[in-house]
Design a protein around this nucleic acid. Structure first.
Lengths: 187, 187
DNA sequence: CTAAAAAGCTAATGTCATTAGCTTTGAGGG
DNA sequence: CCCTCAAAGCTAATGACATTAGCTTTTTAG
């Protein structure tokens, strides 16, 4: 391993720094190379191409998000667990809006990326199992929770909530609606 | 108006055809120019630049979506109106996934674009006023509905729901949760 | 019939991604 | 210690695109 301490991980680190600072559009191989101090083509020694780098970034972010969700959910159950899960989800998106924006964007044909995303889903499942949900109902409920969390986070980080009313309060409303709706059995 | 019947509208039409057929990434000035039969620089006579074209596309799509929502909501109220609103929202996203994906992506610093997006929000507000919601509570409820609808549509069109369980049924669950949650007053 | 604006065009520049092929470095085996 | 070779870099070159500048051709208004 000659020269600079470049590794795929270091490349991803740098890319995420650029992502945080300048947004998804600024994550180019040229920008990463310049920041890291090598010529652009040198990056191909560590990463297949730009898409592959984006994939590595997404995997990293999914794991990071899943870790946070897992953390707040441990030792809690039902409404409390769901509430903390949703709050942590939104907190992540607000803290790292560009990372959040870099997330899905396309159906992952890739097992490792899919697995990373699946971790997030699994946390939701774990929480919902506490509501005695199982089988099909569990899947429906998880999709609803995921849709609500993602939709809110996405809209908020993209600046979609322009009015002056408290976004925190709106999110509390969302939490209330979800916990109420999941508490009762299916039709 | 010499030569070809090019107008900003025609350029947007062509761009949307490309969008539908090949996705957001394929919408380039080069592609539009080639499809329309002019040299790329000629497009600048009708559109300021690529960003401006994207903005026009987004405005068009917002209006189209708002028209559909408005249509299904007329003559209905409360749970029925909300249900049809949500169904129409999802239907649009499924019918035109690439148009849906081309939608927000950034906080609109532009009044016309903001107004077009606002039309969608206004339909939601109109429906929710039927629940006797007003003021702050109305805003919170509208944000929840929008987040849920957008999140679900976004995840579904991006292929986020991989499991075999019926997505229609999941969406029904979401509708139930929302109608139940809005029926009851605030805490 | 004519002049000026509108709509096109070609040429040129700059940014990226990506490939090909050459060079340097440093780690490990002798 | 020295040598070898693969890893890690580099430069040059190509190909998309967006965008600008400046020239030419149509139309349309008068």
């Amino acid at each position: 391993m000659p020269r600079a301490g470049l590794t795929p991980e270091a490349v991803v680190d740098t890319a995420i720094n650029i992502l945080d600072a300048e947004g998804v559009g600024a994550v180019t191989l040229a920008a990463v190379a310049s920041r890291v101090g090598v010529a652009a083509p040198s990056l191909y020694k560590h990463v297949r191409n730009l898409d592959a780098l984006r994939r590595l970034i997404a995997i990293r972010i999914f794991h990071e998000l899943a870790d946070r969700l897992t953390e707040v959910v441990m030792g809690r159950s039902r409404d409390e667990a769901l509430r903390e899960l949703l709050l942590a989800y939104r907190r992540y998106a607000i803290e790292f809006p560009h990372r959040y924006a870099a997330l899905p964007q396309a159906p992952p044909n890739d097992p490792e990326l899919a697995a990373a995303g699946e971790r997030v889903v699994e946390v939701i499942f774990a929480v919902l199992r506490g509501y005695r949900l199982e089988g099909e109902q569990l899947v429906h409920a998880a999709r609803c929770v995921r849709a609500a969390a993602h939709g809110f986070a996405s809209l908020e980080t993209l600046g979609g909530f322009g009015r002056p009313e408290s976004v925190d309060a709106s999110f509390d409303t969302l939490i209330r609606i979800l916990t109420d709706g999941l508490g009762k059995g299916t039709d």
